[in-house]
Write a protein that binds this DNA or RNA. Structure first.
Lengths: 156, 156
DNA sequence: CTAAAATCTCAACCTTGGTTGAGGTCAACG
DNA sequence: CGTTGACCTCAACCAAGGTTGAGATTTTAG
């Protein structure tokens, strides 16, 4: 007969495991938690425990970041997920749809820029008023003050 | 007969004029100069004077920024311009060509991401290993240490 | 039991791309 | 000559997205 040994089966994932599985640094997990992007509870020894859901959440966060969505906005979107139950495919789909639209817009803007750049290579017109590259209309002209434009300067 | 009056015709442009014409703030011009992106000389009273070339230079800088090129890199590219003579259309074309290539790459990356995102909307696969969105191969896996990835997280 | 490995908190620091403000000149108008 | 306005320098600050390190605790392996 097997002796009934007391084996601690820890509930949830530790921060190190999440870090390894998700590919983000532990410090980043702490940071995401501060920013309200992910959640955890604590075990007896004040160590973070994560539900397995966190892995998908982190995956979503990274994808959104790749798409150029700032963390604040990602956090906002994640807050619209139903609390209490584990988000389902439809929930994720809703977020993806919004971000895809933004991504579409970003791609379109860059594509337009590329086309203009192609047209202007060699034309030497870059400092003339006529050049389409000079007056994008949405970027220039708001040039004086206000908050900083970051993230590739494409001012979404 | 006209009295020959002494009218100071200032050589070059003042910082305020350049700011107004280029659409960037004066502080930004100072900043660009510190970073080696533009140059100026000083008049008697230690005020900056710019040659008219600076306007095109600034236009080029802004376009490159819109294309997602970081300032350091722009500065590097601008340093390859021939010193002494005013850059000609061909000089600018060379820079544009490089940046267009980068822009192409960026657009392609984002487009791939968008396509994957489209395919994954609703599939709910985001935390499974099989999902193309989860393992971009160029982004994840370098996740632990090293310099920060900025600018939209597209780690060019 | 003890030593090593994992975590904790909290504050400081980093990079990019600038902006803001204080305190001091310079130039131009009347 | 005075008084605006434009300009100077230098240091501090901002936002995003994290990283690093010190010092304390906890967990785990031998």
């Amino acid at each position: 007969m097997m002796k009934s040994e007391k084996i601690r089966v820890p509930q949830g994932l530790g921060v190190g495991q999440v870090a390894e599985r998700s590919g983000v640094a532990i410090s980043t997990l702490h940071f995401y938690e501060e920013e309200g992007l992910i959640e955890s509870w604590r075990n007896g020894g004040n160590h973070r425990r994560y539900s397995r859901d966190v892995l998908r959440r982190i995956a979503v966060i990274r994808v959104a970041q790749r798409a150029g969505v700032p963390l604040k906005e990602i956090a906002g979107a994640l807050k619209t997920l139903p609390q209490g139950r584990t988000p389902n495919a439809k929930d994720w789909a809703r977020l993806s749809a919004v971000w895809k639209a933004e991504l579409d817009a970003r791609i379109e803007m860059l594509t337009r820029l590329r086309d203009e750049l192609s047209g202007c290579i060699g034309c030497g017109c870059l400092s003339l008023k006529a050049c389409p590259l000079r007056n994008p209309g949405d970027q220039m002209g708001t040039g004086g003050s206000g908050p900083v434009l970051l993230s590739g300067g494409d001012g979404r």
